[in-house]
Nucleic acid binder design. Sequence first.
DNA 1: TCTGGGGTCCTAGGACCC
DNA 2: TCTGGGGTCCTAGGACCC
Length: 421
Amino acid sequence: MPLIGLCDCNNFFVSCERLFRPDLKDRPVIVLSSNDGCVISRSNEAKAIGIPMGEPFFKVEGIVKAYKVHVFSTNFPLYEDISKRVHAVIRAHAPETEDYSVDESFFSLDIAALRSPEAYARTLGETIRRWVGVPVSIGLAPTKTLAKLAAEYAKKHAETNGVHRLEPGAELDALLERTPVGDVWGVGRRYADFLNRCNTGNARKLRDKPDDWLRRHLTIRGLQTGWELRGVSCIPIRTTDPPQKSIQVSRSFGAPTTMIEPIREAVTTFVSRGAEKMRAQGMRARVLHVYITTSRFHPPVTCPVGRMTFEAPASYTPTLVTAALDVLDEIFVRGEWYVKAGIGLSEFSEEGQRQLFLPGASLDPQEDDRRTRYMEAVDRINRVLGQDAIRPAAMPARGKESGWGPRRDHESPETTEHSLR
DNA sequence: TCTGGGGTCCTAGGACCC
DNA sequence: TCTGGGGTCCTAGGACCC
């Protein structure tokens, strides 16, 4: 039976920022979400002084000043770059790996071939620390769900040296009993509330619920979670990424607006970004969604959504932008204060799969080829010269947005998205 | 005053057909 | 006029993850 490992980077975004600011070691540090909205990563020191995860920044500004907490605006391109390096080290040390998220990888270990899986995992963690520079915690267990709990244990207990292994037995039973049910992978806030009302407040009680009860109240996923807590693996490691099914691009505005002009600019920018990402995967979309929304903190919320379905799947930015702006015109209502807009691309087909030529419905093949080659050239130039060297006329350069652009008051000059290229 | 962004999956219910 | 069952497809909503 293989052992499943989970490698989880500690305080990942803060750890990334500290790579460029070694002076911030042992200091309280936080990283904010887009638009400087919420706290999304905290150093141990920031956790210790009571800054909660996900808290709106304005609510913690007092404590930030009092304790001289260092604050960073988000720099996602940097975190993705570091993430790739961590994933690569793990891939070089385990037969099967799954890049599960920006700061986590699952991997398998062949127990028979290793004298001590724990020692092997400790070496792996040490290698990541030396080669990439970020600290990690590693959990080992027969299932993904237990590996998550093991990694969490390792993170909280210094004496584990960053690695903890869980196997079914009395020790695991005791750990599950101490674990609030909401800390189990797959149990979110809604289910945790429900389970607490059902006198199932810890992981052990969840594990011991009958199958039909789990299936009935928590769907097939809850049943899988129950089995995984018992040590029966039913969520396999995915070594290849399945093709993506949708692409979303959305942003909150730096300030609310009642005008359509800045929103047109925003939607143009989002479609352009989404289309570029889609083409990078060799895909075209049949469906485009556009939405705008008023603040969810000031009801009543209005969030009109419109969609466009293309007869022939599209990846050509001008086609997508034109369609998106038409949809925006349809859904936009005067007099509302909008705080955010977004677009979605979905129902993909592969670029190479030519549609049947239907006069009036699709492009003639020559024109289609011309547009495809044109977008390939644009994407290539933008990759070399930096993002947005060539962009739609209606799309502003970064930092030149007409009012809707995000707030980034804590950007660090030395960790721009090009710093590592 | 200020409250993130990007994904996937599952289920129920309605429409429609035979 | 009344009566039924089963299948598929689509969508919206809700749940979860990071």
